[in-house]
Amino acid sequence: MFHYTIRRLLLAIPTLLFISLILFLLLDLAPGDPTAQLPLTIPPEVKEKIRLSLGLGEPIYIRYLLWLQQFFVNEPLHLLAEITNIDLSGGAQRVISWQTRSPVVDIVVQRMPQTLWVVGLSYVIGVLIALPIGIISAYRQYSWFDQIGTFVSMVGFSVPTFFTGVLLIVIFSVQLGWFPSIYDTTHRVEDWPSFLFQVKQLAMPVAVLALFNAAQISRFMRASMLDNLNQDYVRTARAKGLAERVVLLVHVLRNSMIPVVTVIALGVPTVFGGAIITEQVFKVNGLGQLLITAIQANDIPMVQTLTFMFAVLIVLFNLAADILYGILDPRIRYD
């Protein structure tokens, strides 16, 4: 297993380099211009100077290599300097966003808390709701509980978050006035009232996203349970006289969890990717909103860095899912 992990990690290096090249080429060759959003009153020769000051005068391979150096050398050196006070970077240029003219990584770090709060919490809650619903739905297939569960998950799956989000805002912010419609990212939890406020402002975005996540995962859970419930070993277990609870929660559940755990692990990177639409609807201004505004402004260094970080997470969690597979299912061996 250890060798397998090492091998996969080493293989990830060329994969990620290749991904970064593809991302860079895609972004660079796509039509678009970082000065396009500026007012038309700014004359084109000034726009040209702005483009040159952003480094767009250099050929494409120079810019790619520069980004590689900034991301893989300068950023780690800067991080090292932050932690240990040993400055080896000599003030070398970090990856700078074109919109804000500030280091991309600093903004990403600043955005992390609200995204983890909202998207992370909704993922956890979504999983916690989905597992029991999936188990019960499968065990009592076609019962009223299963029917309602199926209906709710179909609704959660097919109604887009920009609809449910706005619907919740109209009901709970405009009509009832219970929750704020705009998320306050500067809010700090210090005491009981400020914690209550945090819960209030999290309530709606988390509810919207949790419904969506729960809908997906509960379907996987149900399907996987159904697969196992009809297996011979279940009949054997029952014939041996095992309690129904043991049959279900020890034997069937453990086997059914194998594909579900993989699905959950593969979903974790999306937590860091943020939820573009939900973040926009509730003005959470997390990583999703950062990505979409950067795309709109053609802020290539920002988009490149963010998408590459997502790529790293996806590669890593794919590996994690494979390893979990091996741990959960003793039949699977990689070595």
Partner: peptide, 28 residues
Amino acid sequence: KAPECTEANFNPIGTGPFRVTEFRPNDV
């Protein structure tokens, strides 16, 4: 050097009625 002065670009000292206490780019 203009783009490197993040601190100054985010927190300019001015003469206006307000001064910046915290600037979060593209947020608040």
